[in-house]
Nucleic acid binder design. Structure first.
Lengths: 219, 219
DNA sequence: TGTGACAAAATTGGTGACAATCCAGGCCAT
DNA sequence: ATGGCCTGGATTGTCACCAATTTTGTCACA
């Protein structure tokens, strides 16, 4: 149990929201889990009022579901919606990849290739966590290089909602072997300053993610 | 001044949020305008607490900007960000157009063509408001037919933020002559069940919107 | 054993009061 | 004049309290 820092300093609503977001991302809080205001207030050392506004924020973000007089729960995202989210992400990340391909500097290209090499090594060594790290590094760097902050914010919000499926996926044996060449293709296209190719490669990658999600839920 | 319905019924936070959203969309509240909690509470007949939570929601949605101890203002979206928003919308609406092209029924296709004819007529008659209505009808219908609710929600949120630029644009003389053929091209591609063509036409349309926005701010 | 009614506990919703903070304007010294 | 400083008013932030509602537990009765 993640206990709140028992310092006397007041914990603001934004901080509570961040903690809950974190807890949902890490799987500490699972879908449909009830979020009792008093409990959260105690756990994080915040007042109930702050917890309330934090839950309000998270509701707008789509991470939490609130029912009048019945309290808040971690929202459970159905498979169908998760696939929609991946489709939207595909469109947005393809945009980012294309822009990144237009704007990338030589130094950044080298950095990107280094990420690619790290991912290859991770697959060779069967190091799941290193591969996952490379994965987030890659997507994160493309978004950063693209300079599209609006798209970045949207992608982050959507990814947070679909986190449950992300999990199942990366836990799947052999998934990295499948996705590695897709990732390398993205890197190649971006480093070659080929926007159209980068977008295509990114869409292909996320189409594969979509398929894999469907398969991973067949059990 | 839109006064609150002076009924004794309590006005909920969600309702206040809706009213403020509406006021921003319609231009009743302009960028950087201060939103004083007590005033809003009085105007809408709600308690200050409800106004507060409404402002919290709108802040997460990006319509309102809040500074600690300094209150809330209508967020002013800079040109640069508005262009980003249009780019993101292009990616998302292209996705919707493509899906709509895959899923549209014959009846819906006829409805879509009717919208196209109405827009042609509006341009012929120089009826600005009819054209604007056709415009929203068209985009709305494509999104509805596409069945992409996640994308739809995201588009709505983004469009609400960029509403100021939308205005200047449709007020511009000759804008409809420029955009009409683009709209017709989208309709044609969707009705021809050509997803790739529909996406391309939509991207072309929004690229033109982007250019027009840049031009409309050169004054 | 199961079911419905009812009371008690738990939880959320809402409001008012008060504290903290910011802002405008006046005032004084330089 | 100009700049620093103070004070009063306006506004926001926070909390404690109570009302409303839901949920849980118990018990009588079929």
């Amino acid at each position: 149990m993640a206990t709140g820092t028992s310092t006397g300093t007041t914990v603001t609503a934004a901080e509570v929201a961040a903690r809950i977001r974190e807890a949902i991302s890490s799987g500490d809080l699972v879908p449909n889990q009830r979020l009792v205001e008093a409990d959260l207030a105690e756990a994080y050392g915040a007042s109930r009022g702050h917890v309330r506004t934090a839950l309000g924020e998270l509701t707008v973000e789509g991470l939490v579901e609130r029912i009048q007089n019945r309290g808040a729960r971690v929202r459970s995202v159905p498979l169908e919606e998760a696939l929609e989210i991946v489709e939207v992400r595909a469109a947005l990340e393809a945009l980012c990849a294309a822009r990144a391909a237009e704007r990338i500097t030589d130094d950044q290209a080298e950095e990107l290739r280094a990420i690619g090499r790290a991912m290859e090594a991770a697959v060779r060594d069967r190091d799941q966590s290193a591969y996952a790290r490379g994965n987030t590094d890659l997507h994160g760097m493309l978004i950063r290089v693209s300079g599209q902050r609006t798209a970045a914010a949207t992608i982050d919000r959507l990814r947070a909602q679909a986190v449950r499926f992300q999990y199942r996926l990366s836990a799947r044996p052999g998934r990295s072997q499948q996705s590695l060449p897709e990732h390398l293709a993205i890197i190649e296209a971006v480093c070659a300053r080929d926007p159209e190719g980068a977008a295509r490669a990114m869409r292909a990658h996320l189409a594969s993610v979509s398929e894999a999600i469907v398969e991973s839920t067949r059990d």
